[in-house]
Amino acid sequence: MNTNFIRLLCYFILLILMQDMVVDKLPLGTYIRPEIYTLFILLLPFNYPPISMLGWAFALGLGIDIFSMDIIGLHTAALLVLAYVRPRLLKLVSPKDDMESIATPSYHNLGWRSFIIYVMLSIAIYNTVLFILDTFSFHNFFHMLLRIISSTLATTFFIILIQVAFISKRR
């Protein structure tokens, strides 16, 4: 448990730094922001305790808020929602017996179709909360919708890319 915690802490720091130092510096324009740090919540093991997951989400959100110099609480609130709905989404896309597994969700154990649906749905929910809080009005609804869709697609693409390139090879 302890080594597992330290391993997660390393990922945690690495993802925040990657987001701030690399991904946010990509010249992608105002509509697209790949949020690779959501990977942390999405790829926790199937059976990870929900309350611990909420704790991680809270810490990760604060870290991102502070590091991206955004409004404090913005990413925190959105990530908490993501962490809360994650078990329900997993239940939706995976067979029941997987939920007891210590494995992490991947295209190996979920299959490509279910994995992409899982990632995309999660990120869509996350982005919806994030952008509604960020805009704090429905004034430019179409504008906001466009940002939600483009960022969701970009984030899904990046997360699958990272999983294929780095994470699944190790296993």
Partner: peptide
């Protein structure tokens, strides 16, 4: 308890957000 912790943390986050 999961819902409860979620609500508590979410309220904290939103309080931080509004008093940012």
């Amino acid at each position: 308890r999961v819902l409860l912790s979620f609500v508590i943390l979410e309220v904290i986050a939103l309080l931080l957000f509004t008093a940012s």
